[in-house]
Design a protein around this nucleic acid. Structure first.
Lengths: 190, 190
DNA sequence: ACGATATGAATGAATG
DNA sequence: CATTCATTCATATCGT
């Protein structure tokens, strides 16, 4: 949310772009709206079958996981010929795809992994963080710049952890210093 | 700029999930900590509407982008009256907001020309502090002393990090006083 | 029609 | 600063 927008919800505008859906493939979840629809349906990008196919191909057959801005540009440009799409859609797609794949893996290997969006407790045992995670996981945590505001050398103090140095309360939950080490590196992604 | 980023406003309650119970991170003490809680109180900061409003105001109307430690302290102190918050939250907020605004540009459907010196006006209808980089690519001036002094002004409204609040004429002008004691490196992005 | 699920979008928190 | 990861919210879509 960057724009100073505050509006929302009942908004179903969207310029109703073309987004031609040529063939009526409708294989699976093919889009099916727009085309001069009196009601501006759809608020979010609904990938076409071709777009998904290509994205998957890039992901699985070409190992694309986190394309950079340039790649995203190229990819989205290419996919645009199959329907409306923006760079952020591609960005989110890879982001989500990777994350969910990883999540699924964790879920599979870890019997006691948080139920994410569970509708009601599925998990028992009030676990939270710390422990388990067998395999090749690294609890890697570095205390690199833990040394609060070294000095103003050069005129600009290290902005890193700037707040840590300035917050008097600073109670055991400082990010970089991370005494809690709440970050477990994801088990290598295949 | 068709992005209608929103969410998290329709529900003033916010953060409350269907099955979620008493979230309301708002103006309440809210005892965090999980400890056998049926719902592990989220560990991360969930900004209230007021807090976001103020942050955005600082960002867009006052050009605050990378507040330093003192400023972060003041800002968080001010925001604290609307809900639990720490300095790091403010720090990250600005950090993320800025980064995402930039990223959005990079992922925008149109190819940006990088940089050399062209400042590509984007979609910001807001101030976006101009470009007073006056020739020198690197003007590393620090205006740290520029801030502060406000303390008893506003009261009800935002305290506005001082300087800016004192001069009405500055409204939407150039926050030259920049809280950011920044350094313009790599002429490309403002 | 729902309810469940899949997935797009947003964003707090970190890391490099 | 930019990149990445984790979580969560919001919906489109599908199943029954």
């Amino acid at each position: 949310m960057d724009s100073q927008d505050q509006h929302q919800q009942p908004k179903i505008d969207q310029g109703a772009n073309v987004t031609d859906i040529s063939n009526t493939t409708a294989a699976k979840g093919e889009v099916s709206q727009q085309i001069g629809s009196p009601r501006p349906t759809s608020t979010r990008w609904t990938p076409t079958a071709e777009q998904i196919r290509i994205l998957r191909d890039l992901y699985y057959n070409y190992g694309v996981r986190s394309p950079n801005a340039e790649q995203i540009q190229r990819i989205s440009a290419r996919l645009r010929q199959f329907g409306k799409i923006e760079g952020k859609n591609v960005f989110y797609w890879f982001q989500n795809h990777k994350a969910r794949e990883r999540q699924k893996k964790r879920l599979a290997s870890d019997p006691n992994f948080h139920p994410t969006n569970a509708h009601y407790g599925g998990m028992l045992g009030s676990v939270q963080m710390g422990s388990y995670r067998s395999g090749s996981v690294t609890m890697e945590k570095k205390f690199t710049e833990c040394s609060l505001s070294a000095s103003s050398s050069g005129g600009l103090a290290v902005q890193r952890v700037g707040w840590a140095a300035m917050d008097p309360s600073f109670h055991l939950s400082s990010p970089n210093c991370n005494i809690l080490g709440n970050r477990f590196h994801r088990g290598g992604n295949p």
